[in-house]
Amino acid sequence: MNWIDIGHINDIPLRGARKLKTALGCVAVFRTDADEVFAATDSCPHKGGPLSEGIVHGQSVTCPLHNWVFDLNTGQAQGEDGSITTFPVRVENGRILIDGAQLAGRSAA
């Protein structure tokens, strides 16, 4: 594990998301109404829609292009054969930390 501080939780709107640039492309970081934080690939497996622009509801996000709905815990698309990669994140003292090793690991793969 290599936790990287990527910002304060208040930098993401409640029920919203921001995008994180990485060597592998963008990662979407989500914040739910209950201050839970999730991270996942910012690209919908369907047509590449930017999930960080989607509507966040419960622990799910809806892709803004064609309304695929993803469970942010598992990355699984609801009723579709498709999923997004999720990344471990945690919040400490209001700071959002993402596992850099995981991101790097994905790059190695």
Partner: peptide
């Protein structure tokens, strides 16, 4: 500010 990426890990790297 909210229109920019939260962070750019490429730059940090």
């Amino acid at each position: 500010e909210s229109y920019q990426p939260l962070a750019d890990l490429n730059l940090e790297a």
